[in-house]
Design a protein around this nucleic acid. Sequence first.
DNA 1: TTCCATGTTCCGCA
DNA 2: TTGCGGAACATGGA
Length: 280
Amino acid sequence: MPELPDVEHFRRHLAETSLGRSIEDVTIRNAKVLALPGTRLRQALQGRRMTRTRRHGKQLLVELDDGRWLALRFGMTGRLLHFKDAADDPAYDRVRLDFADGSHLAFEDRRQLGRIAVIADADDFIRQQKLGPDALDSKLDAAAFTALFAANRATAKAALMDQTLVSGIGNIFSDEILFQAGIHPQAQVKALDRADLARLYRTTRKVLQIAVARGGGSEEGADKLPKGFLTPRREAGARCPHCRGRIETLKFSGRTAYLCPPCQTIGAPRSRSRRTKAAR
DNA sequence: TTCCATGTTCCGCA
DNA sequence: TTGCGGAACATGGA
């Protein structure tokens, strides 16, 4: 589920519910999601308060009152849930912060592909992870975005999902952005002209901003997205919201892309029609 | 029972 | 050097 808009939603949830609360205990249900031994996580957190949140792409960073940071990565199935009543403890709760006031913050992650780390400095961590600028960073203007992409030799979809280029976009939102920009997912980035790249930039920002404003969107939030979006139509027998044609799928770069070929002609490979199939 | 899945990382190949 | 395909991770839903 988590791409930039979802992680932003988790960030706001944590900020609204958990900042300033004293962490009394840390309950570790499954240490697989930990990047450090459970005893060290507990030592790092017990008695501390979280003071500030940051997000960089899909990475959520939370500052502690001793200046260290908690770094949360959600994998495919991770999410955060603050609750008071023990009965609301989610089924796939892996790590839970138990606050002194009796409330809890659960890191839920069914497939256990998320990671929790404790780091000394957020900016150092972002550099170490080789993350590119956050896709909604105010400093990432059209010129900076175009410069990053102009040097790339991958396909448009692979480039959008490359976290070292720009951070925060995954499989679902890369499809959405390319659909709205009219660009074929297998278009070679180097074959796109300036106008295409400028539109790709504007579309990236618009799509992510709308998804953030609507509270996420790559899964449960999909039905909150505007009618013209492709994301809610990643399903059997789907019709393109623009032309009513069939949504097709394409497998490459290890992922399944959803697209509407007639609406996404820019950079389309000639062999496209042989390699796509109608969405299930 | 089999296939597939929103992410990340690693390996081997071109 | 860069990009890509495939596999692995672990689990559950269709």
